[in-house]
Design a protein around this nucleic acid. Structure first.
Length: 475
RNA sequence: GGCCCCUUGGUCAAGCGGUUAAGACAUCGCCCUUUCACGGCGGUUACAUGGGUUCGAAUCCCGUAGGGGUCACCA
């Protein structure tokens, strides 16, 4: 039988990392088994609808490299994949479920329907006579449809593919509302009906549904439908006790992209949060993930999101980029920096590639190219290099005329010139290069060595900066 | 509180009755080196806890503690 999985988000805002991971696993499971991946929009709560939220979902999936076989825009089944457009279907099935004894009409209002101190609904409307129900319906009384949980000692169990056997006693379940008074189904009902109608074979979702799944299974049973397999996923945590959620604002896919994380790295990282491949590989493309994904590798306990590791992974992806690839990815960040448009980005790229972990670090790394003024001359002092202000001054005074006299301007020429000058004034090569580099950049650390920086800046700018530095040192 | 679930280093995570308890990130140290990085090498750090079962338990069972989830006309 063909595997069919689905991702069924409700359009209530942004796509956060936890949702994305659920989508990813559902997608991988389908692809790994040669099945179909379906997208369904769960917008039955009219009060929570957020404009544009559906676009966010699709944009995110697209960026993440997750494609789908059926869903909005790909109505293969000949029906809508948006729940609000399926209202009539749920009503029809709710009525059938009532006929089958799996549900009943309830006319109770709000909280007064509860029995004294107990929170659990007391099934009082189940005891209404057929006539009375018909009469109230005919009268147009507002109603909901409730699931009829057996009033016996039984238990409902199922075997989750990652958590194993889960059992919940009937007495611990409540007659949940299946159809709301506005005619919309609740998740409890819409999910079961849609998953069945859409032929979903494996339900993959967060483990907050672990203990309510037996209830859903009872609905499948009442309809005489085959129950799907379940794959519940542990949550992704912000820390030991807090779940990563959009409420904390920092868990949205878009935010990570804006910060300079590559979608591929994000996908790779979240694939690893809650799952690991047999061979323990860490850097995996989508194709690798599809090839390696298996339920056995899915973890059972919560995973804390570790941005440090994401950074490392992102850096690894950057290191694997070619210069053109890097320039393309880094362009927005380069454009936004002080060097924006003023340098040949492909000259900057080789310097940046091994040094950047997150693209947003780029401006800080390159701004000195356009930014130069007074700086703290104590940075000339370096123990290992045996330099200080005095050494630097000697070095620079000797280097300035030599630099002025250079014929040609490339790293080799610069290197030879500086080394020869150092020898002339009795300085070590390192003393010269360290002093020179700081003099032309005003920084203790730079994304490249002295000659690389000089080549980038050009002769004139170098001379200007050397003069300025000499002035600073003699001040 | 009832019910369901979880518990290997700071973090991710191998392990599925017998291992010197992998690997990765982070961290620390060394090497390389014209700075910073990259890279290379090495170190520190873990089976929540108490009982069983067993010749033998991180692995199986029970309790305890801690944590999460759920108990909506939200999903």
């Amino acid at each position: 039988m063909e595997v069919r999985t689905r991702f069924a988000p409700s359009p209530t805002g942004f796509m956060h990392i936890g949702n994305l991971r659920t989508a990813l696993y559902a997608y991988l499971y389908a692809r790994a088994n040669g099945g179909k991946f379906i997208i369904r929009i769960e917008d039955t709560d009219q009060g929570r609808y957020v404009d544009g939220a559906v676009d966010v979902i699709f944009n995110t999936l697209k960026q993440a490299g997750i494609d789908y076989d059926e869903g909005p825009g790909k109505e293969v089944g000949g029906y809508s994949y948006v729940q609000s457009e399926r209202k009539a279907i749920y009503k029809k099935y709710a009525e059938e479920l009532i006929r089958r004894g799996g549900a009943y009409y309830c006319f109770c209002k709000g909280r007064d329907m509860t029995d004294g101190g107990t929170v659990k609904y007391d099934k009082r409307c189940l005891r209404l006579s057929k006539e009375e129900v018909a009469e109230r319906l005919a009268r147009g009384d507002s109603y909901v449809v409730r699931q009829n949980i057996p009033d016996t000692d039984g238990v409902s169990s199922y075997t989750d593919l990652v958590y194993g056997e889960i059992s919940v006693a009937y007495k611990d379940m409540e007659d949940a509302v299946l159809l709301k008074s506005d005619g919309m189904p609740t998740y409890n009902f819409a999910n079961v009906v849609d998953d069945h109608l859409m032929g979903i074979t494996h339900v993959i979702r967060g483990n907050e549904y672990l203990s309510s799944t037996p209830k859903y299974n009872l609905i499948y049973d009442a309809f005489g439908w085959e129950r799907p397999q379940y794959i519940h996923l542990p949550p992704i945590m912000k820390d030991k006790e807090r779940k990563l959620s959009k409420r904390y604002g920092d868990a949205n896919f878009d935010d990570f992209v804006k910060k300079g994380y590559l979608p591929k790295a994000i996908v790779n990282y979240i694939a690893l949060l809650g799952w690991s491949p047999k061979n323990n590989e860490e850097m995996m493309s989508m194709d690798d993930l599809i090839r390696l994904f298996n339920v056995e590798g899915v973890n059972i306990s919560p995973a804390i999101f570790d941005e440090a590791k994401l950074r490392w992974l992102n850096g690894s992806y950057i290191k694997n980029m070619t210069v053109p690839e890097f320039v393309e990815a880094a362009r927005p960040f380069l454009d936004a920096s002080k060097v924006g448009g003023k340098y040949d980005y492909s000259l900057l790229a080789p310097l940046l590639i091994p040094r950047v972990e997150v693209l947003s670090e780029i401006p800080d790394l390159v701004n000195f190219l356009e930014e130069f003024g007074d700086y703290d001359t104590s940075i000339f002092t370096h123990q290992k290099m045996k330099t200080d202000g005095a050494v630097a001054l000697t070095a620079l005074n000797a280097a300035l005329p030599a630099i002025r006299a250079t014929d040609g301007w490339d790293m080799t020429v610069l290197h030879d010139t500086l080394v020869a000058t150092a020898e002339n004034v009795g300085l070590k090569k390192g003393q010269m290069l360290w002093s020179f580099r700081i003099a032309i950049t005003g920084r203790a650390s730079t994304p490249g060595g002295a000659t690389e920086m000089a080549e980038l800046l050009g002769k004139e700018e170098c001379i200007k900066r050397m003069e300025h530095s000499i002035a600073l040192l003699t001040r």
